[in-house]
């Protein structure tokens, strides 16, 4: 393989152009990632190609997009795994600002709904809050979330219910609910157990399937459904809400 064809979604609302795909031919080099291909186009062929990127190492979450039918991070997707033909579109369910760049405002607003920070009512100790290795283990993987938006774009419920809070926010909520230092479970369950909350999830595993950090997002939502139900039956007894 010495060249790759990139079909890239283009749309500049400001210039009133119709959405379309531009076709670019990019020379293939060994180890080339989809992001490298897009940056080649951006720097050599058309400098106005709009996309987001930063770390180029799968950790910042900027470059999630729809690549050959799957939501994934462009920076960690090897061209060699996809072959000579690559078709790139922006994240779904979000308004397009330009080309591959989407407006993530609603994504962040929904993230903020679940009180995404540690809430504790205990006195702050002089040193650290003690946390056992086992309790810390409950946070492993789920704290890896880079908020890239792949799960949100892949979720079919977001498609049909605009106010659905979304898998990214539920993962964040659960990351704190699972945290032995946190006392905000009750407050969060009221939000995520509500009209736009976890019970709208159809458990089709789309979020989990596309997560670049392999977070058990659907399992986590199931866990939250259980907790919310349990909370209803225990008359909101906070002490029984840790799993």
């Amino acid at each position: 393989m010495d060249r790759v064809i990139f079909e890239v979604f283009r749309f500049i609302p400001e210039e009133k152009s119709e959405p379309h795909f531009d076709r670019f031919e990019v020379p293939y080099t060994k180890g080339m990632t989809v992001l490298q291909g897009l940056l080649y186009i951006q720097s050599k062929l058309d400098g106005s190609l709009g996309l987001r990127f930063a770390c180029r190492a799968g950790i910042c979450g900027s470059c999630a997009m729809h690549i050959n039918g799957v939501y994934r991070l462009a920076c960690e997707t090897q061209v060699s795994l996809l072959g000579e033909h690559i078709r790139v579109r922006p994240l779904g369910h979000l308004p397009i600002i330009k080309d591959l760049v989407v407006d993530m405002t609603e994504f962040w607003e929904k993230y903020k709904l679940v009180k995404p920070y540690l809430i504790h009512s205990k006195n702050v100790p002089e040193k650290e809050f003690l946390q056992s290795v086992d309790d810390r283990e409950k946070l492993t993987r789920i704290v890896d979330c880079i908020l890239c938006g792949a799960c949100y774009a892949a979720c079919p419920v977001v498609d049909t219910h605009k106010d659905y809070i979304g898998p990214h926010a539920f993962a964040k909520a659960n990351r704190f609910i699972r945290d032995s230092r946190d006392d905000g479970t009750f407050e969060r369950l009221r939000i995520i157990g509500g009209e736009d909350g976890v019970f709208r999830c159809h458990t089709v595993f789309s979020c989990q399937e596309v997560c670049p950090k392999e977070i058990n997002a659907s399992g986590s939502i199931a866990e939250l459904k259980m907790l919310t139900t349990k909370a209803a039956f225990t008359a909101f007894d906070r002490s029984k809400l840790k799993m």
Partner: peptide, 9 residues
Amino acid sequence: SKSLSYNYE
């Protein structure tokens, strides 16, 4: 495009 919106050039 000369628009400066996400214009990496």
